[in-house]
Each structure stands twice: as structure tokens, then as C-alpha cells.
Computed example of a mutant assay.
Amino acid sequence: MKQTIAFFDFDGTITTRDTLFEIIRYQKGSGALYAGLLLLSPALVLFKLKLVSSHRMKEIFLRHFFKGAGVSAFREKCAAFCRDRLPALIRPGALEAIRSHQAQGHQVVVVTASAQDWVAPWCAAMNVTCIATQLEVKNERLTGNIQGLNCNGDEKVCRIRNEFNLEQFEDIFAYGDSSGDKPMLAIARTAQFKPFRN
């Protein structure tokens, strides 16, 4: 019997804010975040002008704030972030939609450009599958680089197809809020763009 699956973007769709900035704030403090934003503002301008890719921009931030961090301590803080801070950032409508899909027996998958480290613990608590960007680790420390590709745009669809045979699903839902979600929305029978903003 064919089943139903629902794909959700995370930042901006499920959450009200970009969680990269929030994980920096949680682990490093607001002062360090604002100082970093000021220091990295030239790169941010180039990113806004589309002269720097989202992959490259994310690595610039990761290197500045987390390069050399011990991965065990980093992941422990990410898990604490999911428990302590993330619930306040979740859109009620998104939470209701996830639970509605689950109540109907649908499989729910978060597909996000954010790092798995600070999204997967929340997904596990919600009984939701997590497909996310992977951070590179060498000698038990973060390098500040992304392992493979940033899970955004066409890469979201590539990751989905690597995990699932979409022909097995009778219906496919997708929820997103940015241009980086449009390829994922395009594979769904029922696609919603910025659906939880009320």
C-alpha cells in the first residue's frame, strides 16, 4: 500500500528565525554574535549581492565561530539548545501541521540547510526524520567546513531521492519559505510556500 510523506524546510518554515545565528548566540553569547556580524559584514554584503554562495557564506561563519571546537562539547551544547532555546522559536502552525501529518500516519521529514548537529536532536524528540547539512570533523574537532554540499536548493532534492524512492508514495507534501526550497516544493503534489506566517 502506498503511503504519504511530508517534507518540511526548517529555518523560516518551522522556525521564526535562522538557527545558525541562534546557535551562535546560544553557544558564544550575543556579544560575540554581534561582533562577528560586524567583522564579517563585507562578506555578508557580497552574499546579498549574490557574489558569494550560501555554501561559502555558511563556511565563513562556521570557521569564524566554531573552527577548532571539540565536536563532543559542541554537540552537547547543540542538544541543550534544542531543549532550552529552540521550542520558543517553533511556529505553532508548523508544529500543528507536523502533528496532523503524524496523526494520519504520514512520514514526516525535515530537509534543511542547517547543520544536523542542532536540528537532529529536535527531530528525534518529534519522531521526525532529519536530512541536513553535515559539518566536517577532523581529529574530533570541527574544521569550519561543510562535508559535501550545503543541503539547499537542488541538493535538497538529491538528498531526498538518496533516502527515499518517491514512487512508493501516493501523495507528497512539501513546505518551504525561500528560493532554496523551490526544487523540493516542485517534487510535491501539495506544496505550500510560507504557510505558517499567521
Rank of each mutant, 00 (worst) to 15 (best):
T15C: 01
R85E: 15
V109A: 06
A35G: 14
I160A: 14
C151H: 03
G68K: 02
F74E: 07
A43F: 09
M184Y: 02
Y34A: 07
S30T: 06
G153I: 04
T15N: 00
K58R: 15
A132Q: 08
E22I: 00
A124M: 14
R141A: 09
D117M: 11
T143L: 04
T4K: 15
Y26W: 06
K50N: 10
P195F: 05
L185N: 03
D181S: 08
G12C: 10
L46C: 09
A79N: 00
L86A: 11
A124F: 14
F21A: 14
F81G: 11
R85I: 10
Q27G: 04
A97C: 14
V109C: 07
D11I: 08
M126T: 07
V71D: 12
H101M: 06
R197D: 09
I172C: 05
T190H: 12
K58C: 14
R75H: 03
I187G: 13
F21L: 15
V110L: 11
I60A: 04
A32D: 04
L37K: 05
S53L: 00
I23A: 12
L49W: 12
R25M: 02
E96R: 11
R83N: 15
F74I: 03
A125K: 06
A188L: 15
A80E: 09
P195N: 11
L62S: 02
M57P: 11
R197W: 06
I23R: 08
R99V: 02
V109G: 04
C123I: 02
A174D: 09
R85L: 14
C158G: 10
Q168N: 14
D18R: 01
K156Y: 10
L185D: 05
S178V: 03
I172T: 06
A69D: 11
P42H: 06
K194D: 10
L33I: 03
A120G: 03
Y34D: 01
A43V: 08
N139K: 15
R99C: 07
P42C: 02
T129W: 00
L95F: 10
I14Y: 00
L38I: 12
N145C: 13
A6R: 08
D18E: 09
S72W: 07
A88L: 05
K67N: 15
V119R: 03
A186D: 08
L51V: 11
